[in-house]
Deep mutational scan, measured.
Amino acid sequence: RLRTTILPEQLEILYRWYMQDSNPTRKMLDCISEEVGLKKRVVQVWFQNTRARERK
């Protein structure tokens, strides 16, 4: 499996959503993934990793 590259524009959108809610619902993940143009699972893992980084 290839690692997904997240573009700066996509990152900006993801962080904007993250500021609103760091733990989005499944429905929100659907909306975010549509807006960003990434698979739902990629967005979900990005949120998990970002929460983990914040805890450090």
Rank of each mutant, 00 (worst) to 15 (best):
R1C: 13
R1F: 09
R1S: 10
L2N: 14
L2V: 13
L2H: 10
L2D: 15
R3M: 08
R3A: 07
I6E: 05
I6P: 09
I6G: 03
I6D: 03
I6T: 07
I6Q: 04
I6A: 05
L7E: 14
P8H: 09
P8K: 07
P8M: 05
E9A: 05
E9P: 05
E9H: 11
E9T: 01
E9M: 01
E9W: 11
E9K: 07
Q10P: 02
Q10D: 06
Q10K: 07
L11R: 13
L11D: 08
L11M: 11
L11K: 14
L11T: 13
E12G: 01
E12W: 02
E12F: 06
E12P: 07
E12H: 07
L14Y: 03
L14H: 03
L14V: 03
Y15S: 12
Y15D: 15
R16P: 06
R16F: 07
R16S: 09
R16N: 13
W17T: 05
W17R: 13
W17Q: 09
W17C: 09
W17K: 13
Y18C: 05
Y18A: 00
Y18S: 07
Y18P: 00
M19T: 12
M19F: 08
M19I: 05
M19C: 09
M19L: 14
Q20C: 04
Q20S: 08
Q20G: 04
Q20W: 06
Q20K: 11
Q20H: 08
Q20E: 09
D21C: 09
D21H: 06
D21W: 04
S22N: 13
S22H: 13
S22K: 13
N23F: 14
N23M: 09
N23K: 11
P24Q: 01
P24F: 03
T25V: 02
T25G: 11
T25H: 03
T25M: 06
R26D: 15
R26Q: 15
R26E: 15
R26I: 11
R26M: 15
R26C: 15
K27S: 11
K27N: 11
M28H: 10
M28I: 11
L29F: 09
L29W: 01
L29G: 03
L29S: 06
L29H: 02
D30G: 11
D30Y: 06
D30R: 10
C31A: 15
C31T: 15
C31F: 05
C31Q: 14
I32T: 01
I32M: 04
I32S: 01
I32P: 02
S33Q: 02
S33M: 03
S33V: 08
E34Y: 04
E34S: 13
E34R: 10
E34N: 09
E34V: 02
E35F: 01
E35V: 05
E35G: 01
E35R: 01
V36H: 01
V36L: 10
V36C: 13
V36R: 02
V36W: 02
G37N: 11
G37S: 00
G37I: 02
L38I: 08
L38Y: 01
L38S: 04
L38P: 05
L38W: 07
K39M: 01
K39N: 13
K39W: 01
K39H: 15
K39V: 03
K40E: 11
K40R: 14
V42Q: 05
V42C: 06
V42W: 05
V43P: 02
V43Q: 03
Q44L: 07
Q44D: 15
Q44Y: 07
Q44H: 07
V45F: 10
V45I: 14
V45S: 09
V45N: 08
W46H: 00
W46I: 04
W46C: 03
F47Q: 01
F47H: 00
Q48V: 07
Q48S: 13
Q48K: 14
Q48I: 12
N49S: 08
N49I: 05
N49T: 11
N49D: 14
T50L: 03
T50A: 10
T50R: 11
R51T: 09
R51L: 05
R51Y: 03
R51H: 03
R51V: 02
A52I: 09
A52M: 13
A52E: 15
A52G: 08
R53Y: 08
R53V: 10
R53K: 13
R53L: 12
E54S: 04
R55K: 10
R55G: 13
R55V: 11
R55W: 03
R55H: 13
R55P: 10
K56P: 07
K56Y: 09
K56G: 11
K56N: 11
K56D: 07
